[in-house]
Simulated assay, not measured.
Amino acid sequence: MTDSVIKSLTRINNISRQLLSRIQDLHADLQAPSQNQADEDDVNNSGEMIVDTELKELMLSRQRLITELFEQHALAEITAQHLLANEMKSLDGELLNLSQLYKHVLAEQVINIKKRKK
């Protein structure tokens, strides 16, 4: 059973790192100044759909693995792997913070777009 818990926690942590990386990439893309808005809009629209789908798949996979972990294993088994469990908690906090930051950046962009249209 311990092997199974370790594998589950490791997979969850790996997916969490992938999510963090993708969100950081999106944040960096949003912060980059645009030079040719029309060309960039076409590229961004197709790229955003791919990234959006990828993010959703990673989030769903992560959620499924977390649910399975807690359904299939006793809390004592999970907490026995405290290093991996703490890493999962830490990555979760990073995901939450980065997601909130990303949400704030998007909200600012929407406000700026509305101001330009007026």
Score class of each variant (00 low, 15 high):
Q18L: 07
H73F: 03
T79R: 13
I113T: 15
V51G: 09
Q109V: 00
H82F: 13
Q35R: 11
I12A: 00
L20A: 07
Y102F: 13
M88C: 03
D3P: 07
V5M: 02
H82K: 15
Q24N: 12
L84R: 00
M59C: 11
I111N: 01
R116Y: 08
E87K: 06
N112P: 05
S8P: 08
I113C: 09
S4H: 08
D42M: 08
Q63N: 15
E68P: 03
H73N: 05
E94W: 01
A32N: 13
V43W: 09
L19C: 05
L96G: 12
L30V: 05
L96M: 11
L75R: 13
Q37V: 10
I12C: 00
G93T: 08
A74W: 09
Q24Y: 07
M1I: 13
P33M: 10
V105E: 12
V51P: 05
Y102T: 02
V43Y: 12
I111H: 01
A76I: 15
R11N: 04
Q63Y: 11
M49W: 15
H104R: 13
L9K: 01
N112E: 06
N13Y: 04
K103H: 11
Q35P: 07
A76L: 13
L106S: 00
L106A: 03
L20D: 07
L69F: 06
I66E: 02
L106Q: 01
I113F: 07
K56C: 10
L58W: 01
E40I: 08
T10V: 12
G93I: 00
H82N: 10
L69M: 10
L60E: 01
K118E: 15
L84C: 04
I15T: 10
V110Y: 02
E108G: 02
